[in-house]
Each structure stands twice: as C-alpha cells, then as structure tokens.
C-alpha cells in the first residue's frame, strides 16, 4: 500500500461506508412525494403554455402587419373596378374652365395597376388618348349613361383574353376602344377600319360603344 493509498484510506473507510449504507432505510412519505410531483406537473403545464403565448402573439403580429400593409397601400396601386370606373368617368366628364391641367396621366397609371398587361403601352395609350379639351368638346353622352355602358363593356361581357400574338402591341380592350373613338372623332376612318378589323380578330364578342358599333355595322 502506497503512502497515497494509506492517506486515501483515512477518508475512505469501506466498512464504515457499508455500515452507513445499511442504515439507509428511511424514505420520504408518500404524501410528500405526491405533493412534490403534483407541483412539478402544475409547473410543467404552465411552462408548456408559456411557449404558446409568444407563439400566438407572433402570429397575431404577423397577421396584423400584413393586413395593415395591404390596407394602407396607395390607391393608385390597387383600385376596385368601381373606383376605376368612377375615376374614368370623372376623366371624361366636362371640367370647369380653368388653367390647363396636365394630360390625363393618372387614369393611365390606374389602369396599368389593375391590368398588368397594360404597362408597356402606357405611352402609346397616352398619345392615343385625346386631349382633355377635345374630349370635353366631343362628349355628348350623359356621364352616368356612359359610365354604365363602359362598365358593362369592360367587366360584364369581357371574354377571356386570348393568347397574345408575337409582335402585337399590348393594350387593354378599353385603351384600344378609346384610341378608336379618337380616330372616329378625328375622322381618320381608314385607320379606324383597320383597327376595328384587328380588334375584332382579337375580341370577336366584345361589345363596342354605340358610336363605334354604328360605324362597325356601316362598314360591314
């Protein structure tokens, strides 16, 4: 036995340890066990619930944020069809005399936003649209009737858009109709006829405003 072993022996007495282990008979009472375990289960439940609170809070915040972002987007980007009609009608309605306002750019943007396909021809559409003065002078149909008519044409009976042909300029039916109306009013009948043929090729069923419909029937 080394010196270290002898030293260890002084604090490691196996026979004493065995005697002590033999004396280990007492146990905590069963009701004490029960109380402690019941408390542990209660806390475990509350800890499980504690995870649910931040989780549900995060979900609510996420939902609320996305809803808020959706609702506060500027109206130029998202417009309901009715809003667009109103805006369009206002554009066509006679304006009170005053300083000349810039050309009708806003309605063009609005239509672009709701119909993504119309983005590209914005410039074309703008140039095709009559000036406000010309429009004001030519508008003879009452505002309400015109608005209802346009609405019916654009949203009630509009067929599904056919596949776009390669090289064909991209524009909405309404923009096309507007351009043709302008041609009619300017008396550019040859070009109008050609446009009507193209229009019918693409939108065979789409009703036209009365002016254009009359012209179309006369041409036939």
């Amino acid at each position: 036995m080394t010196t270290q072993d002898q030293h260890q022996e002084k604090i490691e007495d196996r026979s004493l340890s065995a005697l002590y282990q033999a004396s280990r008979r007492e146990q905590p009472a069963a009701d004490l066990d029960g109380e402690i375990l019941a408390q542990a289960h209660r806390y475990a439940r509350s800890r499980r619930r504690r995870w649910l609170i931040p989780l549900s809070t995060a979900a609510v915040i996420l939902l609320g944020t996305s809803l808020t972002l959706t609702l506060v987007q500027p109206p130029t980007e998202i417009m309901a069809p009715d809003e667009m009609d109103d805006a369009f009608s206002e554009e066509l309605a006679p304006q009170s005399p005053g300083p000349a306002s810039p050309p009708a750019a806003a309605p063009v943007i609005k239509r672009q936003a709701i119909m993504p396909e119309a983005r590209q021809p914005a410039v074309e559409l703008q140039s095709a649209l009559p000036s406000r003065a010309a429009t004001d002078a030519d508008v003879s149909v009452p505002k309400e009737k015109r608005s209802a008519e346009m609405k019916q044409q654009r949203f009630s009976t509009a067929p599904a858009m056919p596949e776009r042909e390669v090289g064909e300029s991209i524009r909405t039916p309404q923009a096309w109709i507007d351009a043709m109306l302008t041609m009619l009013r300017k008396g550019d009948l040859k070009a109008l006829r050609a446009e009507l043929v193209l229009f019918r090729k693409r939108y065979p069923e789409l009703p036209l405003p009365s002016e254009l419909a009359d012209f179309e029937s006369q041409s036939d």
Binding site: R24, D33, I36, L37, A40, H41, A44, R47, R48, W51
Partner: peptide, 16 residues
C-alpha cells in the same frame, strides 16, 4: 420546457 415525466425520473434518482 414542460416535460413532466423528465422531472419524475430526476425525482426518483435523488428522492432518497
């Protein structure tokens, strides 16, 4: 994290 049986195992280990 809320696992009550884990506590029961620990409790049994050090109970006496």
């Amino acid at each position: 994290k809320g696992d009550a049986p884990a506590f029961e195992t620990l409790y049994q280990r050090y109970r006496q």
